[in-house]
Computed example of a mutant assay.
Amino acid sequence: MIADVLADAASRMDKAVEMAKDDFATVRTGRANPQLFQKVLVDYYGTPTPLDQLASLNAPEARTLIVTPYDKSALKAIEQAIRDIPNLGVNPTNDGNIVRITMPELTQDRRKEYVKLVRTKGEDARVHVRGIRRKMKDDLDALKSDFGEDELARAEKELDALTRSHVDDIDDALKRKEAELLEV
């Protein structure tokens, strides 16, 4: 029973860390990265469809990204979806076969804004992990009648260690992203 609660906590916290890393990847760093566009939804025949299901994305140069649609009829919709991305500052060009995106240089002020944004996302992820810890602690407290206090105290320590390690993982990913953002 206790092992199940701890395994569930570890699984949920792992997912929270992965979501944080995915969120960090969507913040642009000055070079073209296909992950920037992983959450872009394109209106494809009236259905919001992820861009990576409609086209292949590759970065032939540091600041250029090429989007090659599988269906040429989706070209305009893809171009519009990319143009509508807030805070990206790109203007995609369409040559009839591909969409070419040239990433503009980041200013120092813009880099600082992105660092603030990433820190906010990191704090949200840490809060989420702590929320998982709180929920699992409540689940452990509900088991008081079935297990001894020593076992529950040990499980609580394991839960705290698990929480600490996942928060540290988020902090490490955050530091890497900040360094990447501030790199000129």
Rank of each mutant, 00 (worst) to 15 (best):
125 A>M: 07
54 L>T: 02
60 P>G: 04
95 D>P: 04
97 N>C: 00
101 I>R: 00
69 P>D: 05
86 P>S: 08
146 D>V: 11
71 D>K: 06
60 P>E: 06
124 D>A: 14
94 N>G: 06
60 P>R: 04
90 V>H: 02
137 K>Q: 15
78 I>Q: 01
117 L>I: 10
58 N>S: 14
76 K>W: 00
81 A>S: 08
54 L>A: 03
57 L>D: 03
137 K>W: 11
114 Y>S: 05
137 K>T: 12
115 V>K: 06
143 L>F: 09
135 K>F: 13
70 Y>L: 11
67 V>K: 01
104 P>F: 03
108 Q>Y: 10
66 I>F: 08
111 R>M: 03
136 M>V: 06
141 D>M: 13
117 L>V: 08
67 V>N: 03
134 R>E: 12
126 R>V: 15
108 Q>R: 12
93 T>Y: 09
134 R>M: 13
58 N>K: 04
86 P>V: 01
142 A>P: 07
64 T>D: 08
85 I>W: 01
70 Y>E: 10
65 L>H: 06
90 V>F: 02
118 V>R: 01
151 E>C: 00
104 P>E: 05
57 L>N: 03
98 I>V: 15
145 S>Q: 14
114 Y>K: 02
116 K>R: 15
140 L>A: 08
66 I>G: 04
74 A>Y: 01
106 L>G: 05
101 I>N: 01
65 L>C: 08
64 T>C: 07
133 R>A: 14
132 I>E: 14
136 M>N: 10
150 D>P: 08
84 D>K: 14
80 Q>W: 00
120 T>Y: 12
144 K>S: 15
103 M>I: 15
136 M>C: 12
69 P>I: 05
60 P>D: 02
88 L>D: 04
147 F>I: 09
98 I>H: 05
144 K>W: 08
105 E>I: 09
90 V>W: 04
72 K>C: 00
142 A>R: 15
120 T>W: 08
103 M>H: 03
129 V>T: 13
127 V>P: 10
81 A>N: 00
92 P>L: 05
124 D>M: 07
100 R>T: 13
135 K>I: 10
114 Y>V: 00
119 R>S: 13
97 N>A: 12
120 T>G: 14
115 V>H: 03
63 R>G: 04
78 I>E: 01
96 G>N: 09
144 K>D: 15
105 E>S: 13
76 K>H: 10
102 T>G: 00
123 E>W: 09
82 I>K: 01
77 A>R: 03
58 N>W: 08
117 L>P: 01
84 D>N: 14
80 Q>D: 13
71 D>W: 07
105 E>Y: 07
60 P>V: 05
143 L>V: 13
151 E>G: 00
114 Y>I: 07
78 I>D: 00
85 I>R: 02
96 G>I: 09
82 I>M: 05
91 N>H: 09
143 L>S: 09
97 N>L: 09
122 G>N: 07
107 T>W: 06
111 R>Y: 02
91 N>S: 14
80 Q>H: 09
148 G>Q: 11
118 V>E: 01
100 R>Y: 01
94 N>D: 14
